[in-house]
Write a protein that binds this DNA or RNA. Sequence first.
DNA 1: CTGAGATCCTGTCTGC
DNA 2: TGCAGACAGGATCTCA
Length: 269
Amino acid sequence: MPELPEVETTVRAINKFESHILEEVIIHNRNLRWKVETKVQNLTKRKLVVKITRRAKYILIYLDDNCLMIHLGMSGKLRIQNNADNYFKKHDHAELIFKNEKIVFNDVRRFGSIHLSKNPQKHRLIKNLGIEPLSRSFNKSYLKNISENSNLCIKKLIMDQKYVVGVGNIYASESLFMAKINPKRLSKDISINECDELVKSIKAILKYAIKMGGTTIKDFYSADGNKGYFSLKLNVYGRDSKACNICDEKIVKTVIGQRATFLCNKCQS
DNA sequence: CTGAGATCCTGTCTGC
DNA sequence: TGCAGACAGGATCTCA
């Protein structure tokens, strides 16, 4: 579910809690991607939420002296629920309780995680992450430079979080289609002009997806309950054997690095 | 160091 | 309708 646009959409939905008081954190199930540390469970005193932001696919909820780091993994989502609505959904693993509402962390597959860190930028899961794709430093010369020094194919390279963050399986396929680059090509063989096209495509698609509120493949809902509408605009992802929107050739599904990959063999060379 | 492959988990869909 | 097997938007870990 969550790539950068979905995480960003989630952050925007919950940032109304900035400058609110977090009453307590309740953990129902510690067995997530990593076992939730006891210090998270011990967040039972009132804390001011200073800032809610995003780094890569991590949601960062800065408290006055600490920071909650939430990763949604494959199937995680946050929802805002009124405290008076006393219902519970299957796979609700954690709750951040505020005065009138709460943020509920629900994650079927439990690949998500929750951490607490005094300095999230130096946390082991964050410190080695690559640059943000929507930043100025992600440009054609950066991509050309990392491409030349890697033996990965281009799709694996742009999905590798140590180079550039936030690009997951859907947006990798979509970006490569837009840039007319075959995902199996070695990154070494991508020209500077193609790097330029790919950078522009990644930025354009991520920005557009954020504007549309993320992608709904199965069940992505933002924390405010709105659906993402980007799926209506997908050109290749999930369109196996359907006609290419550009040339009418059949879209092909293949596998790269154990991940489904969709492309048009005619448009992408 | 690099890169390939297994792995964590549950739910849903496909094909027999 | 039942059931086995494949597959799902992530990313770490192990091993060569």
